[in-house]
Amino acid sequence: MRVDPRQLLDLVVGDPQAERAVPPTGFTARLTLFTAAAMAFLAVFALALSMATGRLADRWSEELARTSTLRISAPADQAAAQLRAAITLLETTPGIAAARALTPDEQRSLLEPWFGPDLPLESLPIPQLVEIIEEGGGYDATGLRARLQAEVPGAVLDDHTRWREPLISAAGRLRSLGWFAILLIGAATAAMITLAAQSALAANAQVIRVMRLVGAEDGYIARAFVRRFTGRAFLGALGGTVIGMLAVALLPRADDIGGFLTDVGFRGAGWLWPLLVPPLAAVVAFFATRAAALRTLKEQS
C-alpha cells in the first residue's frame, strides 16, 4: 500500500487550509480547553499516586522479602544461652547471609511509638529479636523451624509472609487503581471532546453544506475540525499538566511519619512521565474528533 506523505503530514499536523474554512466557535473552544486542562491536572495526580504506590510496593517487597525475624522468649537465666545457640544455628543454615541480635537501643526505638521514650526495657519481659538477612534463594523455613524447636525452644521464626503478601497485594491494587483512573480520565476526555466536536459540527452545518457543494470530501471537512480540536486539547492539557506538576511539587515532603501519604509525587526521571500527558491528550482528541466528525458527516448526508 502506497503511503502519501502529504496525507501522513495532514494526519500529524492537520490542514491549515481546511481549518480556515471553519469559523471559530467560542463555546466549544473554551469547553475543550477547560476539559483538557482539568483532565490533565487529574491525570498528573493519578500518575503521581500510581507511581507512589509502585514505589511503596517495591520497597515493601524489597525490604521484607529478604529479611526475617526470630523472636526468643526465654527465662532471664536462659536468654543469653538460647540467643547464642540461635545465632550459631542461623549462621550455619544455608540461605542465611547474616543473623544479628537487635541491641537494646534498637528494640527500644521499635517500642517507642507505643510506650514513649525512656522505656525501662530491662525491667520488662521483652523478647529478644534477631534480624535474619537472607541470601540466594533463601532458607528452608520448615526445616529451620524444626531445628529451632529442638535446639532453641523459646524461639519463634517470623518470615514476614503473613503480612508481607497482603501489603504488597494492597499496594499493587492501589497502583492498578491509579492506572485505571488514568484510563477513565482518558475516556472522559475523549467523551467530552466528542461532545464538543459534535456541537461544533452542528453549529457549522451551513459551512459543511457549502464545502460539500464545492466538492469537499468528508476527510477534508473532518481535518478542518480535527486540527482545531487537537491543538486545543494539547494546549489545555499542557496548562493542566504544568499546574498539576506544580501542585505535586508543593505537596509536603516525604518523611517516615507521613509515610505513604507524603510520598505521593515524582522522583528523578519520574518527573518526565507527566510530560506525556499533553501529547496523549492531543492523540485522544485527534481520534475522538475524527471519529465524531466522520460519523456526523455520514449522518448528515
Binding site: 487550509q17 481546511a18 480556515r20 474554512a21 469559523p23 451551513q206 459551512v207 453544506r209 457549502v210 464545502m211 460539500r212 457543494l213 464545492v214 466538492g215 469537499a216 470530501e217 477534508y220
Partner: peptide, 29 residues
Amino acid sequence: RRRIGVVHQDCQFLDHLPVSENIALPLKV
C-alpha cells in the same frame, strides 16, 4: 461535484472568508 459548478439562488458562501477565498474554495478543497 467538482465537475459541476452550481450557482444557488441564495449563493451559499462562507461568510467569514473574503470573497476571493470563497471563489477559490473549490480549488482549495
